[in-house]
C-alpha cells in the first residue's frame, strides 16, 4: 500500500525523479493559472460584474481581510505568498472528489517544501520590512540566552506545519482507502465529505499560521521601534 504519491514514479534518472506528486502539482498549477487568466481576461470595473469575477473578488478580498485581521497592515504585499499557499493547498485538497486522485499535500515532500517556503518567507518579509539587523535581533529577544530557544521554536514550528498538513491529508486518504476495502459503498462518501472539510480547514490553518509567523516577524521589529510609555 502506497502512503505517498511520491512512491508512484513515472520517470527516474539518478537524482531526478518525476513522480505523481510533481505531475499532480503541475496539473493544479495549470488549472489555477488557466482559470485565473480566463477569468481575469474579462475583468470589468463596472458595478455589474460576472459571477466568476465576483467569486474571485470575494476570494481575494477574503484572503486580504484575513491577512489584515492577523495584523499585517498592507495585505496586498503579502497576498501573493499567503494567498497562493491557501489556494494551492485548498485546490489540492478539494480535488479529492475526483476518482483516483491523490493530493500532493499528502506527500511529505510537498508539505516540507511548503513549510520550508514559510521558513524562509518569515525572515524574508521581516528583513524586507525592518532590515537585516533588526530582524536578527528578534532572535535574542527578550534576552540573549533565548537565542537557541528561538531557533528551536522557528524550526519546530516549521516541522509542525509540515507534519500537520501531511498527517491530516495522508490520514484522510488512508482512512478512505482502508474503508474502501471493508465498507465500499457508503462510508467512503462520508469520509470524502469529511476529507473535503479537513482539507479546507488545513488549508486555512496552514496559511493563517504562515501569516501569523510573518506578522510576528514584522510586528516584533515594529514594536521595538515604538517608544515605550510607562502606564501612570
Amino acid at each position: 500500500m502506497k502512503l505517498s504519491p511520491d512512491e508512484t514514479i513515472f520517470w527516474e534518472y539518478g537524482f531526478f525523479t518525476i513522480n505523481l506528486t510533481l505531475v499532480t502539482t503541475w496539473g493544479i498549477m495549470l488549472l489555477l493559472i488557466i482559470s485565473a487568466v480566463i477569468i481575469t481576461r474579462q475583468l470589468r470595473t463596472d458595478v455589474q460584474i460576472s459571477g466568476w469575477q465576483s467569486f474571485l473578488e470575494i476570494l481575494v478580498t477574503g484572503i486580504n481581510k484575513q491577512i489584515e485581521e492577523v495584523g499585517l497592515k498592507q495585505p496586498a504585499h503579502y497576498i501573493g505568498f499567503i494567498g497562493t499557499l491557501f489556494l494551492f493547498i485548498a485546490t489540492a485538497n478539494l480535488l479529492i472528489i475526483l476518482p483516483w486522485y491523490e493530493p500532493p499535500t499528502g506527500s511529505l515532500s510537498t508539505t516540507a517544501a511548503l513549510s520550508i517556503c514559510v521558513l524562509f518567507a518569515v525572515p524574508f518579509f521581516g528583513i524586507q520590512k525592518n532590515g537585516f539587523v533588526a530582524y536578527l535581533k528578534t532572535y535574542v529577544e527578550p534576552a540573549a540566552f533565548m537565542l537557541p530557544f528561538n531557533i528551536i521554536g522557528k524550526v519546530s514550528r516549521t516541522l509542525a506545519l509540515t507534519i500537520r498538513l501531511f498527517g491530516n491529508i495522508m490520514s484522510g486518504g488512508l482512512i478512505i482507502a482502508i474503508l474502501l476495502t471493508i465498507a465500499p459503498l457508503l462510508f467512503p462518501v462520508i469520509m470524502t465529505g469529511l476529507g473535503l472539510l479537513t482539507g479546507m480547514v488545513q488549508a486555512y490553518i496552514f496559511s493563517i499560521l504562515a501569516t501569523v509567523y510573518i506578522a510576528a516577524a514584522v510586528r516584533e521589529s515594529e514594536r521595538r521601534e515604538m517608544p515605550i510609555t510607562q502606564p501612570k
Binding site: 505517498s4 513522480n19 510533481l22 506527500s107 517544501a113
Partner: peptide, 11 residues
C-alpha cells in the same frame, strides 16, 4: 513515508 529531496526542491 520518506522525504524525496528532489521533490522537495522541485515543489
Amino acid at each position: 513515508m520518506e522525504i524525496n529531496w528532489f521533490t522537495v526542491v522541485a515543489q
